Amino acid sequence: MDETLRERKKRETRERIADVAMGLFLARGFDNVTVAEVARAADVSVNTVFNYFGTKEDLFADRQELAVDLPQQVLREREPGEGVVRAFRRDFLDALDTRHWRYGFNLGGDIFARLVSESPALTAKVRELHVERELGLARALAEELEADPDDLAPHVVAAQILDTTRILSGYALTRMLAGEAWETIAPDLRTQAETAFGLLESGIGGYCVRPLQAAG
């Protein structure tokens, strides 16, 4: 369904405010910019900013609804006969190959990561988004499997998968922040990802078993 003129203008206003805000955050740091300054730079009122964004942190995370839904999208779009772990493996490696933003691999992803690390408020916001993504994926798994409300397996699976992608993304971003070239990072990240998803697919029961003591 095509958007109306009013809807298009609202979308454009929202995008403009978010773009202006991000420019200020990148130039001066998130904590050093006020909502009033964003409003002035975007030529709107403070009330207008809050009409579109509930908090200052939402100005930074303007794609949060999409980001929260992405894990559920991977689940929905998996191929026939494909398990959820294999679907996330395929999605992660595709993002690695294309340098897609959904895992922070895009050009400038390290800049966003630095902004987050420098701001306690943004760090808390990102942590909140991780929780929402995990709960959303767990609910989607439970619904598809018609799991009992007391069945914790969907939550365990969602946590394992999304923690794996978060750790892998963090590994890449740490090296990006250190100034390494993507061409150097990508092959190592692929190896780490293949190992990590291999562990998830086969189960981790046999991982890090303490050796038996030698007899005698």
Results as ranks from 00 to 15, higher is better:
residue 92 F to E: 09
residue 47 N to W: 08
residue 2 D to Q: 12
residue 158 A to L: 10
residue 184 T to Y: 01
residue 101 W to N: 08
residue 31 D to C: 04
residue 20 V to F: 07
residue 85 V to N: 08
residue 39 A to S: 04
residue 21 A to F: 04
residue 30 F to Y: 02
residue 134 E to I: 10
residue 127 R to Y: 10
residue 55 T to D: 09
residue 130 H to W: 12
residue 141 L to A: 03
residue 196 A to T: 01
residue 104 G to R: 00
residue 9 K to M: 09
residue 151 D to R: 07
residue 50 F to D: 07
residue 170 G to A: 06
residue 106 N to F: 15
residue 39 A to T: 00
residue 157 V to K: 14
residue 51 N to D: 15
residue 42 A to Y: 03
residue 70 L to F: 14
residue 86 R to P: 04
residue 175 R to Q: 13
residue 50 F to S: 13
residue 199 L to E: 06
residue 84 V to W: 07
residue 163 D to S: 15
residue 137 L to H: 06
residue 179 G to Q: 00
residue 39 A to H: 00
residue 201 E to K: 01
residue 212 L to G: 11
residue 171 Y to R: 07
residue 166 R to F: 11
residue 212 L to I: 15
residue 74 V to Q: 01
residue 96 L to D: 09
residue 122 L to E: 01
residue 76 R to W: 06
residue 70 L to A: 14
residue 105 F to R: 00
residue 23 G to W: 05
residue 183 E to V: 00
residue 185 I to K: 06
residue 56 K to R: 13
residue 187 P to L: 02
residue 134 E to A: 11
residue 168 L to E: 00
residue 100 H to P: 02
residue 211 P to C: 00
residue 57 E to L: 06
residue 88 F to H: 14
residue 117 S to I: 08
residue 158 A to I: 05
residue 97 D to R: 15
residue 56 K to Y: 02
residue 110 D to M: 01
residue 151 D to V: 03
residue 77 E to V: 11
residue 210 R to I: 12
residue 89 R to L: 11
residue 61 A to W: 06
residue 188 D to W: 05
residue 110 D to C: 02
residue 28 R to I: 03
residue 195 T to P: 06
residue 61 A to Y: 09
residue 19 D to Y: 10
residue 51 N to Q: 15
residue 81 G to D: 01
residue 3 E to I: 13
residue 1 M to L: 10
residue 202 S to F: 10
residue 82 E to L: 07
residue 141 L to F: 05
residue 153 A to C: 05
residue 206 G to R: 12
residue 117 S to D: 14
residue 45 S to I: 09
residue 176 M to K: 06
